[in-house]
Amino acid sequence: MSAQEKYQSLLELANQNGTSYELSEGDNGTLVVTGVAPSEEAKTALWDEYERLDPEFRSNDLILNISVGQAGGSGTTYTVVSGDSLSKIGKHYGIAWKSIWDANRDILSDPDKIYPGQELKIPV
């Protein structure tokens, strides 16, 4: 069984959770997966799957080189003041209100409702 067959569920998972990857061939047929995961959780899920397929990672047939992308994580933050709206803040940073909305779904439930003092992630 080739390493790709052995680790196919890992690659399927990467496709599902939004991890982009490239394959190359390392020492003695080692499968080298180099990629970027959209979040720390996605990366952890891939490592959990790797561990399930190869407990303790002793087969030496896979190199899993996954970093976590900068999906809004390292952007700036903005503190909402009275009279703000997402489109007004977006205009200030030169981005669409919707990209701020998308980056803050975890704390916002309605794009029309933001409150003074809220800290919004600005994906720039």
Partner: peptide
């Protein structure tokens, strides 16, 4: 530790 080694840009491993 294994993750750290995997992420250094290596092409083979003997663990």
């Amino acid at each position: 530790c294994i993750q750290t080694i995997n992420q250094a840009g290596i092409t083979g491993i003997e663990n």
